[in-house]
Simulated scan of single mutants.
Amino acid sequence: MTSAIPAKQRLLSLDFFRGFTVASMILVNDPGDWGHIYEPLEHAKWNGCTFTDLIFPSFLFMVGISIVYAMESKKTDPANHSKIIWHALRRMVTLILISWGIQFFYHPSLEHIHTLRFPGVLQRIAVVYFICTILYLKTSANTRKWIFALALIGYWVLMCFVPVPDGHPANLEPETNFGAWVDRAVFGTNHLWSQSKTWDPEGLLGTIPALGTCLFGIFIGTLIKKTDTDNQTKTAWLFTYGVIAIILGLVWGLFFPINKSLWTSSYVLYAGGISTLGLTLSYWFMDVQGYKKGVWPFLVFGMNAITGFILAGLVPGIINLFKVNYQGKEMGAAGYFYKTAIQPFFSPNTASVIDAFLWVLLIWILMYPLYAKKIIIKV
């Protein structure tokens, strides 16, 4: 489904920030060589947080803000709630099916059903969006604050103090923590992350603190949307909340480490604080000061983020369907281009990141006509 852009209702800084995040996602997901990557463009090995680890929570943070902007005027009339919830349910199912469809594109066999990865990035976004839509419609702002606190504290208690039912004590190790046990019990080992099969970085239990990330976005979106507060005051409060969240995340991280794969409560606060500061900076320059020069290239991604996500998942595979002989071996066209046109002329890490930038540029070119014609593709 497509629609024209309602210019007056859009938050320019949100579109810019979303576009920057989509571009960053493509950049870190498509290096020329997975063995040669600059450290900020890799996930932390386990505990800790890199630039790459901030991308996914930024999406969920912005989902929360988008919920406010899309539903604030409609939520006042309870008669609209059922329609909104059904729409959110349909969207959740659609996003999950899209993610599974991308998997089938790379493994087009009915036998793949037995090894289909059930959790995933789009799946988590979809489920969190649906639940937070209901929370936004059916609960007050104060109730959502309590839910936010209970989600983060409850998850901390569960992960750090409750023994794992398989006999392990409470722990935060990849394969033996409570969340990993839940994933194996619910999904089975065949339907988890392919590189592990014993745990999943987008596992079921991690949905609880991920709700906190989206609720964080709802808090920030509600503040930006307030009509009884001037822009300078809003900006000051946004900056303050961002700094406080980062500090709280770092302090909590001393005994519940910042960890993207576990989506720890400290990670929610830390990443949410950084997202808030990034959005605040964009908001001040673009929506308050009216600075728009040089912004539009990111709007190409920002106004059709889901389309960008899908294209980024499919285009490399489509190009690699075309096979080329290289040194006696058959390889995909994209891999051949990297091996012959980029890798020989640069250092390994530089060649790898140049290839990633070219993927960003290619997806951008494919999406530009949508931006030029002011078309938004919705799911």
Rank of each mutant, 00 (worst) to 15 (best):
F345Y: 15
R90L: 14
L269S: 04
I377A: 12
A7L: 15
I244L: 10
V164E: 02
S58I: 12
T264I: 02
F104R: 02
Q195D: 12
S196L: 06
F255N: 03
L11G: 02
T280Y: 06
W34A: 09
V324H: 00
S82F: 13
H36V: 09
L321A: 12
S140P: 08
I319G: 00
A341S: 14
T50C: 10
K8D: 15
F337L: 12
K138E: 08
I102S: 05
P348L: 05
F187T: 07
D183A: 07
K292I: 14
P31Y: 00
F309M: 05
F20W: 12
F239T: 14
E39H: 12
K225T: 05
S24K: 07
T233W: 03
G188K: 01
L95C: 11
I113P: 02
P31F: 01
T2Y: 12
W296V: 14
D355T: 13
V182C: 10
V268G: 02
W364H: 06
H114G: 10
Q103I: 09
T276M: 08
R10F: 08
H36E: 14
K83P: 02
L277P: 01
I310M: 03
A141I: 14
D355S: 15
N259P: 03
W34N: 08
L97D: 11
N29I: 01
V360T: 06
V353D: 10
V268L: 09
V251W: 05
W86R: 14
R184Q: 11
G328I: 00
V164Q: 01
A351K: 04
A170G: 03
H36P: 06
S282Y: 08
T94N: 10
N171F: 03
L299I: 15
D166A: 03
F285E: 14
A185E: 13
D228M: 02
A305C: 11
A180G: 06
A351Y: 05
G101F: 11
S194W: 15
H112G: 09
E330A: 00
G217A: 09
T350Y: 12
F61T: 04
Q289S: 10
V324P: 00
K234T: 00
A151E: 10
L361A: 14
L211D: 04
P209A: 03
N190V: 09
W359A: 07
D355N: 15
N231E: 14
A4E: 15
S347A: 15
A305W: 07
K226F: 08
L370Y: 10
S282P: 09
T115L: 10
S24L: 14
P165C: 05
T222R: 06
S196V: 06
I365F: 13
P40F: 12
T227I: 09
Y368V: 15
D230G: 01
P209T: 08
T233A: 07
I274A: 06
I318Y: 03
L27Q: 06
V324T: 01
D15W: 10
G332R: 00
L250E: 08
A149Y: 09
T189E: 11
G64S: 07
F56W: 04
P57Q: 10
F130H: 04
R10A: 11
G120C: 03
L215T: 08
G249W: 01
W34R: 12
K378Q: 15
V295G: 07
R124P: 08
C160Y: 06
V251T: 03
F20A: 12
Q327M: 05
I354H: 11
K329R: 13
L172I: 01
H43R: 08
T207M: 13
F309T: 00
P369C: 09
L27T: 04
